[in-house]
C-alpha cells in the first residue's frame, strides 16, 4: 500500500514540477495593459472595430495599430479608460446610432418580379438588384438583422428593416451587411432624417414607392438660408454635422420620406 502511494505521489510531484518549469520557460509575454484593456471593453466580440474580437483590438491598441477610441460600442467612460491605460487622451464623441434609409415596405413599394429564392438580401441583390422596383430599396430579407450581435434590428410587418435605437451600439456590422448600402451611422440626438435612398427623378421614384423622396425641393426651398438640408441628384440629404431639428421641416414633405423622429424613427428613445 505504501509503495504505490509513494510512487504515484512521486510521479505527480515530478510532473507538476515539470509543468511549472515549462510554464516559466515558454511563457508568452503579454503586455499587462492588453489584459486591462480587454477587461474594460464590452466583451461582445462584435467585430465592429474591424478586429477579430475585443482581445485582438486590445492588442492592436497596445501596439499602436488602433486608436484607443476605435471601439464603436463602448461608452465615453470606457473610451477614456482605454486611452488612459495606454497613456493617451481621446476626444468626446457624440453617441451615434444606425439608421436605415428606407421605409418602403411591401405596402407602399412596388415590386418588379416575384422573388422566391434564398431568404438573404445579398442573394436577392444578385438578381437584377433585388425584387423592388426601386433600385435602392430595402429588400427586407434580414441580412442586417442576422449581422447584429445586439438584437437591435427588427423587421416591420411590411418587410423593411428598422433599427431599435435603444439597443443599437453603432458597431456598424449592419452597415457592412446591407448589400444595398442603406444603413448609415448618424448622431443619436439628430431628430430629422431623410428615410429614402432613391436617386430617381420624381415620376420614376413615385411609381416605385409611395414614400420615396421625389427631389421636389420643398424642404430645401422653405429653408433657403439653411444649408443643413439640401437636395442633390433628386434626393434630399441632411448635413448631420449641423442637424436641423425643426419638426415643421418634416411636415413639409409630401411623401413622408423626410421624417421627424418620435414619429417614424424613435431615436429619442435612446437613453445612453
Amino acid at each position: 500500500m505504501l509503495v504505490p502511494t509513494v510512487v504515484l505521489s512521486g510521479i505527480g510531484l515530478l510532473s507538476g514540477l515539470g509543468l511549472a518549469l515549462a510554464a516559466r520557460a515558454f511563457a508568452v509575454e503579454t503586455d499587462p495593459r492588453q489584459d486591462r484593456i480587454t477587461e474594460a471593453l464590452p466583451g461582445a466580440n462584435c467585430g465592429g472595430c474591424g478586429f477579430a474580437g475585443c482581445g485582438d483590438f486590445a492588442g492592436a491598441v497596445v501596439r499602436g495599430d488602433a486608436q484607443p477610441d476605435g471601439c464603436p460600442v463602448c461608452d465615453q467612460e470606457t473610451r477614456r479608460l482605454v486611452a488612459a491605460i495606454v497613456g493617451q487622451t481621446v476626444q468626446d464623441r457624440a453617441p451615434r446610432v444606425a439608421l436605415i434609409l428606407c421605409q418602403g415596405g411591401d405596402d407602399v413599394a412596388a415590386k418588379k418580379y416575384r422573388y422566391n429564392g434564398l431568404a438573404s438580401c445579398a442573394s436577392a441583390a444578385l438578381l437584377g438588384g433585388g425584387d423592388k422596383t426601386c433600385g435602392a430599396g430595402c429588400l427586407g430579407l434580414g441580412d442586417c438583422q442576422r449581422a447584429c450581435a445586439f438584437g437591435a434590428v427588427e423587421m416591420t410587418p411590411s418587410g423593411v428593416a428598422r433599427i431599435i435605437p435603444a439597443r443599437c451600439t453603432a458597431c456598424g456590422q449592419c452597415v457592412a451587411a446591407c448589400p444595398k448600402d442603406l444603413i448609415k451611422l448618424v448622431p443619436a440626438e439628430a431628430t430629422i432624417h431623410v428615410l429614402c435612398s432613391n436617386h430617381d427623378r420624381g415620376p420614376a421614384a413615385k411609381k416605385a414607392c409611395a414614400v420615396a423622396c421625389l427631389g421636389c425641393k420643398k424642404c430645401e426651398k422653405s429653408f433657403a438660408e439653411d444649408p443643413r438640408i439640401k437636395v442633390a441628384d433628386f434626393l434630399a440629404y441632411i448635413d448631420y454635422e449641423h442637424a436641423p431639428d425643426d419638426p415643421a421641416l418634416a411636415a413639409l414633405c409630401p411623401t413622408g420620406s423626410l421624417v421627424c423622429s418620435g414619429a417614424a424613427a424613435p431615436a429619442a428613445e435612446r437613453t445612453s
Binding site: G117, L118, S120, A122, S123, L126
Partner: peptide, 12 residues
C-alpha cells in the same frame, strides 16, 4: 436552389 446558392457563394 443549388445554383443560386453557388452564385452567391462564388461572389462571397
Amino acid at each position: 436552389p443549388l445554383v443560386q446558392h453557388f452564385k452567391r457563394g462564388k461572389a462571397e
